[in-house]
Design a protein around this nucleic acid. Sequence first.
DNA 1: AAGGGCCTCAACCGCTATAGA
DNA 2: CTCTATAGCGGTTGAGGCCCT
Length: 316
Amino acid sequence: MVRTPCCKEEGIKKGAWTPEEDQKLIAYLQLHGEGGWRTLPEKAGLKRCGKSCRLRWANYLRPDIKRGGFTPEEEDTIIKLHALKGNKWAAIATCLAGRTDNEIKNYWNTNLKKRLKQKGVDPTTHKPINSTDQTGSEPKHHKLGSSGSARLLNRVASKYSVDSNRDLVTGIIIGNSTNIADVSQNSGDVDSPTKNSTSTLLNQMAAASSGFISILMDNTSTSPGLSDNCSFSDGFTEFFSNEEISGMYTNVDNVGLMEELKDILSYGGADVGDIKDSPEVNVTDDMDFLDSWNKEDDLDLEKFVSSLDSKIGVFV
DNA sequence: AAGGGCCTCAACCGCTATAGA
DNA sequence: CTCTATAGCGGTTGAGGCCCT
């Protein structure tokens, strides 16, 4: 079966670009800038379709493109970001200065994927191949354990509570905030409770986790291998020191932890408003539990989440 | 030296998202 | 709202180079 060509017009050249064609394209773009790709070939004297010109520029001719092999730091970053984002090559490329999505995609398919397989790691799930569920049925939810994710949660809770005071957490619980970042800027302005159902509570947590994870992930770090315009937000640096942030990204295990954190906090990836019709629970109990946190040295979010689990029957 | 298989990566394809008329 | 043009994305292809026998 023959594909329908993207350039239907007669006389349009395809295939590898010649140095002369490259020069024409570069000269034109230096003079006129990017854009107007449809009319560009004719104006630049090229027998190519606009799309081909755009791709040639974006993937090869752009002056800020870094040529040459990937450094170990870049490889590491790609693996970590792939674990987080999947095959979102463009998103991954934004965190690697000078690298194009196409280049990263090729490098992943030809090198990194194989290397992970050789290490016994599933390149799709980033989990050990022999640890995959033999029954073939993926568990829908995590069952919480005394894992690193719990420790991470505790650290978040601890920092959160110490630095911004427990009203922030309380605000999430009682439905007066939708985003940790927002709350952290407005601590102390929490009004009285307005809703008291577990579904509200969970939605608030999903909202909060969404905000927090976006702080964690969508913004970025100053760690090796990441580009300058890819830095963690101020909100996140309030929680962790530069050394800690760097440590998280240099230790590949933390990618998994952060995914777990996301899963746990979002109740299996539920978006805000997704959690409906949960059994009603007296939120006062939850508030009491939060109060007890501040009386303990080691704040235990895992315990809190587990207590919710037992009430609403998730993760069981 | 030859040639067959494998690997790499630039380029292409098809699709979706978005903006503007 | 619909249509069209454009940009962008991810998957796939295939030419050319490399390696092995």
